[in-house]
Design a binder for these strands. Structure first.
Length: 485
RNA sequence: GGCGACGUAGCCAAGUGGUAAGGCAGGGCUCUGCAAAAGCCCCACUCGGCAGUUCGAAUCUGCCCGUCGCCUCCA
């Protein structure tokens, strides 16, 4: 059963077939780092990360390009506002984004082209469009002549008349038609600019960089590439415009066979976006929640569906993750003591593959993984572990040291001794700076209190420990403590 | 106004013709000084509403209602 994907271009689920045997070329619209990335970005890139992993797992050699639109009105405006250069703005936000992606386990793109590194190719593309009358020079820039491209609207399923009826487009006198969009904006005083003879210095408009860079990096022959992706909010106008810019210059359209779009993430039932400002920066969400839990959260919903983020749902994902870790650790322990009878295995992988073949149904795949991880010991533990690890890897979940550590072996919270001193404030903690020593001292104090049946003191100490990130479990033989993950 | 998606328990969500997965929250029990953790059990006679197709529908069709998105910068 081959991989089947929903193709925005045809509005159908189709069997995926790459153009070149064994190779897949993907272009995904990346970030415009003119503001902090938010959780919605994470959802989108997390999906393409899993798609990539799955294609590679299926034996394809994948070339994954994800651009950086490093020049746009917003970063210029932000630079003016903050009195720094636009390059600093972009570099800062992009570095933060990259760190977040790394924390989420999203693999680096094979190529990460910056728009401003492709100014020559952008100029070339614009010149070619002007030559063929798909573009014209106006007083404040160079525009794309939408009316000239017969297929305009095909991707997003709309027609020019409807779009004009929308009438939310500002009338710009410089343009021939309201739908025409800028390919090149002539520089105003104080704005960054690049030369473009004979038309005038300026900067690229949004959209053109993707046409120029996908052509340069994935499709020099002008015959198209395999997959073009991005968030659903890019379908119109961004991807529609990319097609309009690229296809008239191609030897053989379409620009890309498959157009894949990730569903938007809502927050408080509203779109999470820069302009609404109802988002928390991704980096802060990652501070609050385990990145692997966030990955699980997104895995549970179909990639193309609108999804609403809630703290409650997030708590559910956190619980799922800790159960998965425990199951994994138990399986790991069983595998270590197994005497190594050969096991068949393979069926979990088959079920996961079947799920992903069905338009990347990660929810079904995850369901299989969780069921297999928690299944009562059946078959060879080592084989099961090996398979579980492989399938987790496919979903981008990499068991690390913390997965194997029992809760007592996890690293202690930073400055635990100080925190405990502040919480408890009793003299016997004075001078103890080592977290572990302090912790053991508190546990011993509490045990003494319990022996005296001084329950209120015992509970007070337990609460203090809890506030410092240490959980106490009283058992038959003493009290065990564990670090709250 | 146009185009599109979605509407399944308090929350998230799977299921797309054969009689409602799972998780979280909640409740009960075991354990405990009390907890926590863990384990067991319970928790949608029903899938926004109304018609229709069918032996049979959450799943197909039509209409209606609602929410959200795109149509302007956006993953």
């Amino acid at each position: 059963m081959p991989l089947r994907l929903y193709n925005t271009r045809t509005r159908k689920i189709e069997a995926f077939q790459p153009r070149r045997e064994g190779q897949v070329s993907i272009y995904v619209c990346g970030l415009t780092p003119s503001a902090q990335a938010h959780l919605g970005h994470a959802r989108s890139f997390l999906f393409f990360d899993i798609l990539r992993r799955y294609l590679a797992f299926s034996g394809y050699h994948v070339t994954y390009v994800q651009n950086v639109t490093d020049i746009d009105d917003r970063s210029i405006a932000a630079a003016h506002r903050l009195g720094v250069s636009w390059r600093e703005i972009v570099a800062g936000y992009y570095a933060e984004f990259k760190r977040s992606m790394q924390r989420l386990g999203v693999r680096e793109p094979d190529k990460e082209p910056y728009a401003t590194d492709f100014i020559p190719q952008i100029r070339e593309t614009i010149s070619a469009l002007i030559e063929r009358e798909y573009a014209y020079v106006a007083s404040d820039g160079i525009y794309y002549r939408v009316g000239k491209f017969a297929n305009y609207g095909a991707l997003s399923n709309r027609n020019i008349a409807e779009l004009e009826a929308g009438a939310r487009i500002e009338i710009d006198e410089a343009k021939e038609e309201p739908l025409d969009f800028a390919l090149w904006k002539f520089a105003k005083p104080g704005e960054p600019h690049w030369p473009f003879e004979p038309y005038g210095d300026g900067r690229p408009g949004w959209h053109i960089e993707c046409s120029a860079m996908s052509h340069a990096l994935l499709d020099p022959a002008g015959t198209g590439f395999d997959i073009h992706g991005g968030g659903a909010d890019l379908i119109f106008p961004h991807h529609e415009n990319e097609i309009a810019q690229s296809e008239p210059l191609m030897a053989r359209p379409p620009m890309a066979d498959f157009w894949l779009h990730g569903g938007l993430l809502l927050f408080d039932n509203r779109k999470m976006s820069k302009s609404l400002g109802n988002f928390e920066p991704l980096s802060e969400v990652l501070d609050r929640y385990d990145p692997q839990a966030i990955r699980l959260l997104f895995l549970r919903t179909g990639y193309g569906k609108v999804m609403n983020f809630t703290e409650e749902a997030m708590a559910g994902a956190v619980a799922t993750l800790s159960r998965l870790r425990r199951d994994y650790r138990l399986l790991h322990e069983a595998a270590a003591s197994a005497d190594g009878t050969a096991g068949g295995g393979g069926s979990l992988t088959e079920r996961v593959v079947a799920a992903l073949d069905d338009d990347m149904n990660t929810a079904a795949a995850l369901r299989e993984v969780l069921a297999a991880a928690s299944a009562p010991a059946a078959g060879d533990a080592r084989e099961r572990l090996r398979e579980l690890r492989s399938v987790l890897n496919l979903l981008g979940i990499e068991p690390d040291d913390r997965w194997l550590a029992s809760p007592e072996e996890l690293p202690l919270p930073a400055d635990l001794a100080g925190a405990l001193r502040a919480e408890i404030g009793e003299p016997w903690l004075d001078g103890i700076d080592d977290g572990r020593t302090a912790l053991e001292r508190v546990v011993a104090e509490r045990l003494a209190a319990r022996a005296d049946k001084d329950w209120s003191r015992s509970d007070r100490l337990r609460d203090a420990l809890a506030r410092c990130g240490i959980e106490i479990k009283d058992g038959k033989e003493g009290s065990a403590w564990s670090v709250v993950r």
